[in-house]
Write a protein that binds this DNA or RNA. Structure first.
Lengths: 189, 189
DNA sequence: GTCTATACCAAGATAGAC
DNA sequence: GTCTATCTTGGTATAGAC
């Protein structure tokens, strides 16, 4: 296989596994197993585990921004907030994407991961404020909701959906298609 | 020193260090150094690193709930939302408290830490809904804001306050005494 | 481009002395 | 109650063959 294709496979596997166990908690051997290559090959291809994680963060941010820009281009209307929220939730379907970012965010103390995390977060903030037309307050609310969603995913809260309180929390935290429909019809929240 | 006092010292040190480096990224040796005891003593006192982390999570949750209940008892009025938000921000002054919780939250995949994290999060949610009188929507907004605050702290975003976008984001995310004053005077946001 | 074998180090935990 | 010494495991990274 061409090394470039292999690279993609390893990156996708790494995103998944990093999302599951965090940066430190993930071993290069687990990533290798998930990508069906040998452990030394993973290290050889990316240099170090740290560099691989940084690549995963960059990849996750790229996908996120690509999605957001797509939404803005398509919907130049009122319900941008709704649509972008929905798009965000759909990103949760890419294994490890939101969680790898989240793991990066809590490691701000680490000199290299922290720098990358802050940079990435601000890329999103600047997009919301200067391209998508969000006010500071709107951007704040959007990002807040996003962080709660990330937390719910990180906690695997969906495992306890039998509990009515959990169900209520989850249904309130996650924008649904239904909410989007309502928004498109112009009703109030 | 009595072992109970020593225990408190180690717990406080552990909370700080876990907050800095996360559960996996923290070594028992670092905690020991921070608490000025030997590494084996830390392990001996708590059994395993995992048990120590669980204790830290429990302690963090206790302090959080204690603070929240204090606010509710004192302020049986309108501005509960404001006051409780302020109280939350003040918890950030206890080193590692919010961050240890946050590290627990992203490790929901871990069988024992995940269980404890979900349980703790729901303790807070139930308190908001069934004791503090928040609606589902209000609880959601409060927790969302909290998760953004945790993320900003985790990212060490304050390091980049020279950047005007960062400053704006931080000022919007963190409830300030000023906002609280405004709230108490009955103005609208 | 990919593997096997392995060096090397760090970390959690245990034994046992004082 | 607290330490020093140490066992043991597991993980990153390197060497080098195919």
């Amino acid at each position: 296989m061409r090394s470039e294709d292999r690279r993609e496979l390893i990156l996708a596997a790494a995103m998944r596994v990093f999302g599951d166990s965090g940066y430190v908690g993930t071993t290069t051997a687990e990533i290798a197993r998930a990508a069906e290559v040998s452990q030394p090959y993973v290290v050889r291809m990316f240099g170090t585990k740290e560099k691989l994680f940084i690549e995963v963060l960059g990849r996750a941010l790229d996908l996120l921004m690509q999605t957001f820009r797509g939404v803005v281009e398509q919907a130049d209307g009122q319900d941008l907030h709704q649509r972008i929220g929905l798009a965000y939730v759909e990103l949760a379907e890419t294994p490890g994407l939101l969680l790898s970012l989240m793991h990066g965010f809590v490691l701000g103390n680490d000199p290299v991961i922290g720098r990358e995390g802050r940079r990435g977060f601000m890329v999103v903030y600047r997009f919301l404020r200067h391209e998508a037309g969000f006010s500071a307050e709107e951007a704040n609310q959007f990002l807040s909701g996003g962080m709660l969603i990330n937390t719910m995913i990180g906690l695997r809260m969906a495992e306890d959906l039998a509990d009515p309180d959990v169900r209520e929390l989850m249904e309130t935290a996650f924008p649904t298609k239904l909410d989007a429909m309502r928004g498109l019809l112009g009703e109030q929240r």
